[in-house]
Amino acid sequence: MSSHTLTEVAAPGDPRDAEPPRIVPRRRFGQWTAAGLVLVLLGLAVNSVARNEAFRWDVVGDYFTSAAVLRGLGLTLWLTALVMALGFALGALLAAGRLSANPVLRGVSWGYVWLFRSMPILVQLLFWFNIGALYPTLFGVKTVNLLGPVTVAIIGLTLHEAAYAAEVVRGGILSVDRGQVEAAQALGLSRWRRWWRIVLPQAMRSIVPPAGNMLIGTLKGTSIVSVIAVQDLLYSVQLVYHRTYQVIPLLMVATVWYVIVTSVLSVGQYYVERHYGRGSELAR
């Protein structure tokens, strides 16, 4: 009994242990070294931005809430909202076409998505801007008068957005189990009711994350309309810096606004996702 050696004590689950052996997690030196390095680099970057006089944060402050900038921000916001709404409405129709039993509807929807995803949005905007060269008059009105820069921006961005929205919506619908539609059919629910009450709410779980991505992408993507002189947020700060030559501070004004709006949208997305996720968690 006296031969209670060390090796015996170290054996796993030795019944003679007074207490179970203590568990010591592995030390992760590599991770901590990398984390320290990242913090140092981050500190250097923040320091250089904060101490670089050329950023002219005072100028940023002066223009941040100026009337011209706020007007530009306003246009960016409503243009984004309108393009998203119209784009997803058209996209939903295209998705329905793609999933239709009718080969003509399927083919046309496929063709639309193929064409408008292939065309750079910048090319498309310039194309619509110059559509007067193809059709000098539309409905008896001069095309140039009918299609101003803002209208062209709405049309171009919407057609582009719809092609992507169609794929997002189609993916969402495909993610809903076929049995759901069958159950709804067996219960005698109308086509409309099946879509709004059964399929769409479930499809939304898959639609919301990529749609949130698209919304944020569109918010920033609308800045492309500055090339056809639509006075969005970016174009508004450009007008100022063409006059004052304070390019960087005014780009910072636009950037900070984009960051603020994006942050608000991200928070909104969290709550929308939570809403459509109801019933999906396995709480028992």
Binding site: A183, L187, Y276
Partner: peptide
């Protein structure tokens, strides 16, 4: 169909 009830193998309850 409203006069014919159908019960599926996989229940097909509406999860939401």
């Amino acid at each position: 169909r409203t006069r014919i009830g159908f019960v599926f193998q996989n229940f097909n309850l509406f999860p939401h």
